[in-house]
C-alpha cells in the first residue's frame, strides 16, 4: 500500500430522479420541452434527495461505523464512497482500490461451481485470476465445503452461499473496505470464525466504513462512528458518544462494555476468542 489511500467528498449530494412511467418515455421529454406554457422545464422530474451536503475526509487508518435509521442513507453513503454513485452535485474523490461488500449474492452465478464463483467474484473485487487461484485452498478450507465446491452453486443452501461469499471477501487485500450489514444466515460457530477473519481483513485494509445496526459489531471493528440521519451526517465522534446520542445511555454503556472487554482480550494475548 504505497499509494496514498483517501476519500474526500465536498458537499456531495445524491439525488435520485424518480421517473414515473410517463416521464421515462421520449414522448414526455419532447412534449415537455415544447409545451413551455405549462411552466415546466426539462428538469421537472421528481427527485429524492438521498444524501445532502456530505463533506468528508477519510484517510488511511480510519475505521468508521455508520449508524442511523432504516432509509437514513447509510447504504447510499457507502455507494457514494465506493464511487458507484458519483455525486449529482458537489464532488467526491476516491483514491485506492475499493472492495464493497453490500450484497453477498451479487455477481454469483447459480449455474457454475463454487470454485468458479470464487474466481469470478474475486475478479469483480479487483483481484486477478492468479491471485484467486493462489488463495483457493485457504478459501476452501475456511468455507468448510470441501468437495461441495465443485458442485453448481444452485445446489447450495443460503448459509453455504454466504460462506463462499465471506470466504472470498475476507481473502482479498482491499485498500478501502466498505461493509454493509446483512451478514447473517450462518451458524454461530461459523460466525465466530468469520468474525476473526473479518477483523484480520479490517486490519489489512486502509480505510473501513461499516454500516450496521449491531452496536457490538461496530465496537469490535471500528474506532469512531458517524450518525447518518435524513441524508446528512448528524454527528461524528467516538462510538460511545454517537451511540449515546442516537440510541440512548443503555446502548452506549453496552458499547463501552464491549470496548473494555476487547481491550482486556488484547492485553492477554493468546486467550482472545
Amino acid at each position: 500500500m504505497t499509494k496514498h489511500v483517501s476519500i474526500d467528498t465536498h458537499n456531495a449530494c445524491v439525488d435520485f430522479p424518480i421517473f414515473d412511467a410517463k416521464s421515462r418515455s421520449l414522448k414526455k421529454a419532447f412534449l415537455g420541452k415544447a409545451g413551455g406554457a405549462i411552466g415546466r422545464n426539462d428538469s421537472d422530474v421528481v427527485v429524492v434527495e438521498a444524501l445532502r451536503d456530505i463533506t468528508l475526509s477519510l484517510k488511511e487508518g480510519d475505521r468508521i461505523g455508520l449508524v442511523g435509521h432504516n432509509g437514513a442513507g447509510k447504504s447510499t453513503l457507502l455507494r457514494l464512497l465506493s464511487g458507484i454513485y458519483e455525486p449529482s452535485r458537489g464532488s467526491a474523490k476516491i483514491r485506492g482500490r475499493v472492495a464493497p461488500v453490500f450484497d453477498l449474492g451479487v455477481g454469483m452465478d447459480p449455474e457454475i461451481s463454487g470454485y468458479e464463483n470464487i474466481i469470478i467474484r474475486g475478479l469483480f473485487l479487483g483481484q486477478t485470476r492468479k491471485q484467486m487461484l493462489a488463495k483457493m485452498d485457504e478459501i476452501a478450507e475456511f468455507t468448510e465445503l470441501g468437495e461441495y465446491l465443485s458442485m453448481p452453486l444452485r445446489t447450495y443452501s443460503t448459509g453455504m452461499r454466504v460462506r463462499v461469499a465471506m470466504g472470498v471477501v475476507t481473502s482479498i487485500d482491499p485498500e478501502i473496505l466498505l461493509l454493509d450489514e446483512g451478514i447473517g444466515a450462518v451458524d454461530a460457530e461459523f460466525m465466530k470464525k468469520a468474525r476473526i477473519r473479518l477483523q484480520a481483513l479490517v486490519e489489512r485494509s486502509g480505510i473501513l466504513v461499516f454500516a450496521s445496526h449491531s452496536n457490538e459489531f461496530l465496537a469490535q471493528l471500528c474506532d469512531s462512528a458517524m450518525w447518518v440521519d435524513h441524508g446528512q451526517i448528524r454527528m461524528r465522534g467516538e462510538i460511545e458518544d454517537v451511540v449515546r446520542a442516537y440510541e440512548g445511555d443503555d446502548a452506549a454503556d453496552h458499547v463501552r462494555h464491549v470496548i473494555a472487554e476487547m481491550k482486556r482480550e488484547q492485553d492477554q494475548p493468546g486467550t482472545a476468542l
Binding site: 455507494r79 465506493s82 464511487g83 458507484i84 475499493v98 464493497p100 453490500f102 450484497d103 451479487v106 455477481g107 469483480f124 473485487l125
Partner: peptide, 9 residues
C-alpha cells in the same frame, strides 16, 4: 443493473 449498483467497476 445488479452489478452496476453493487460493484464499482
Amino acid at each position: 443493473e445488479g452489478l452496476i449498483k453493487q460493484l464499482p467497476s
